[in-house]
Structures are given as C-alpha cells and as structure tokens.
Amino acid sequence: MKKSMSMKTWMTMGAALWLGGCAAGQLDIQRDELSDARHAIEAARKAGAERCAPKEMARAQSELYYAAHELTENGVHPDETAGHIADARKYADKARMLARKRCAPKPKAKPEIIRLEGVHFRTNSAELTPASTATLDRAVAALKKRPDIRVEVAAHTDSRGSAAYNLKLSERRAKSVMEYLIAHGVDASRLTSRGYGESQPVASNATPEGRARNRRVELRVIR
C-alpha cells in the first residue's frame, strides 16, 4: 500500500511539473541586444505616440516582441532577429515623428474682426451720430446673412483722459452699438458687448490721425 502511494505521489508530481512546463512564459524584452529599440520605443512613448500614432507604436512594440522571440532561438535566424530590431526602431522613430506632429497643440486661429468704419459718437458720450447708422445697418445685414456666428461688440477709445474713464466710456459705447443691432433685428443671444478703453491702440495716440484710428468699434466673431 505504501509503495502504491509512493508511485501515485511521483506520478502526480510528474504530471504537475509537465503541466507547469506547458505555461508559455514571458518574452524577455529587457535583453541587452534590444536596448536601442527599447529606447527608441520609450522616446516615442514619451512623445505621446501611444495616443497620437497608435498603429505605428503598436507595430514597433510588436517588432520588439518578435525580436525577443527570435533571440530565444539562440542565433538560429540572425537575419530575422536583426530585421525585427531594425523594424522596431524604424516604426518607433516614425511613431515619434507622427506624435510630434499630431500631438502638438494647434495654433489658435486669429479671431475674425469686422471693423465698423464710420461709427462715431458725440464727444465724451455713447450717443451714436446720425452718420453712423449707415455703417451699422450694413453690419445688421451682414449679421443676418451669417446666422451661425456670435459676435462681441468691442469698443475702444484713444488715450486722452484717464484710463478708468476711457474704460467706462468704451463700455457704454459698445453697449450702445449692441442695442442698435438688437433694435434692428439681430438676435440678442448672438451678441455681447465689451469696452476695452485705451488698452488696445492700433496707432499712435500722439497724433490726431492716430487717435482717430484708435477710437473705433469692432465686431469680434465668436463661433
């Protein structure tokens, strides 16, 4: 009986070892031979390639695994091994370059600005001059043609007077223009107004001509 048990023991342990040996194990991609390819893949990963160039990055990683597999065959296919290492580097470099291009933040588009030439106010007032209405009526027509856009009515002053006074004045002027547009049929939900005072000059305030250019109203398109 004891002998029979011992036989069972050995058979069981043998079976366990055999089954354990069936486990596939892991490919060792940390081998020294793969360090260049590994570093190239790491550089691509740092550049954001997993997100921005997933296909190329996956191919690079696959080639690395392939190369690791070939290396387990102890030099049976040296050309294939070298080929996989070279491909891993090639695809990693490609992924890195694509990631730099695709992950880079897009430059902000310049906002479209429609200058309302000919809009004037009485001195130190937000009251529109009668001559301004022609320009504003054209603005109304333009806005009705483009119902998909929203605009900020932006008013500016020259630098005469205090900055605080000019800011308040520009706010009132912007609001005055916005109210004109609303009164002539532009949906109020498409409009906002903002005064910038003397903070954004487009010309020198040292000359009358420059100051005249700085006193202006614009429509800033917000999509």
């Binding site: 023991t9 342990m13 366990a16 089954l19 354990g20």
Partner: peptide
C-alpha cells in the same frame, strides 16, 4: 497526502491550463 498533492497539482497547473 493524496488530497494535498491534488491541491498542489491544481495550483501548479492552473497557469498552464488557462486557455490550454
């Protein structure tokens, strides 16, 4: 002992059996 060995077999073989 047989019971313990059976458990041992199960523990050792489990990784290999996954998807085998």
């Amino acid at each position: 002992r047989l019971l313990l060995l059976t458990i041992l077999v199960g523990a050792m073989a489990a990784p290999a059996m996954a998807g085998a």
